[in-house]
Structures are given as structure tokens and as C-alpha cells.
């Protein structure tokens, strides 16, 4: 299923957009993702992921308001589409089924 595959970083961005309900635009996504993961993320990577997800149909966008702080430029808000939720659920289910089959010994030997 080429084109609908969800990468790790994409998954995080997609989830973050979902978390930020109605408040998700480039910068808020960046801040939220950074605080949740504890990584430093470059804004350009966020943008790239957002537009890729939009092209895949997992996100949709709307033009928002302009603020002084933004130099008079309008925001672009992102929302998770039903397709997006389906994709996230699918990933989650795959993981859950994998976790379910994960043997306890293997868990202990790791420690």
C-alpha cells in the first residue's frame, strides 16, 4: 500500500494535530511534539510532514487569522480527517496485536 504508509515521525505529527483539536498549525504542532517527545524538531520538518500528510489525505487544512506576531501572515490550521483516524487506528491495532504476542521471557532478558 504505497503512499498510505505512515512513518514514525508522521505518526507523531498526525497524533499531535489530533491532540491540539482546532489549534494545530505549524508552530503549535512543533511545540507540542517537542514537549511530548523531548526531541528538538526543526520547523521545516514539521511543515514537510504536515503537507505530506495533507497530500495523503490524512489531514485537511483551513486558512486562519493573521496576527501581528506573524508579521501579518495568516495561519493554516490542520485537522485530522477520517482517513487519518483510520490510519492511526490501523497502526495502533498492528502494534497492539504485536504487543499481545510479545513473550514475557524476551521482556525479562532485555532487562
Amino acid at each position: 500500500m504505497k503512499g498510505t504508509y505512515l512513518g514514525e515521525f508522521e505518526e507523531i505529527v498526525l497524533l499531535t494535530v489530533g491532540v491540539l483539536v482546532g489549534e494545530a498549525y505549524g508552530l503549535t504542532v512543533k511545540y507540542e511534539a517537542e514537549s511530548r517527545t523531548g526531541r528538538r524538531i526543526n520547523l521545516s520538518a514539521i511543515h514537510s510532514a504536515l503537507y505530506r500528510l495533507e497530500r495523503k489525505g490524512y489531514l485537511r487544512s483551513e486558512k486562519g487569522e493573521a496576527t501581528q506576531k506573524r508579521g501579518g501572515k495568516r495561519k493554516k490550521y490542520f485537522f485530522v480527517t477520517n482517513n487519518g483516524i483510520a490510519a492511526l487506528t490501523e497502526v495502533k491495532n498492528i502494534r497492539a496485536s504485536l504487543w499481545a504476542s510479545f513473550p514475557a521471557i524476551s521482556r525479562e532478558s532485555q532487562q
Binding site: Y25, K75, K76
Partner: peptide
Amino acid sequence: ELVEEIEGDLMEEFVD
């Protein structure tokens, strides 16, 4: 098509 929000986000981040 994209320059406006990109530039806006960058500006906002820059201010922060």
C-alpha cells in the same frame, strides 16, 4: 500557495 503560512510560522517562531 504555501509561502504565506510558512513565512508566518517562521516569523512567529523567530519572535518566540
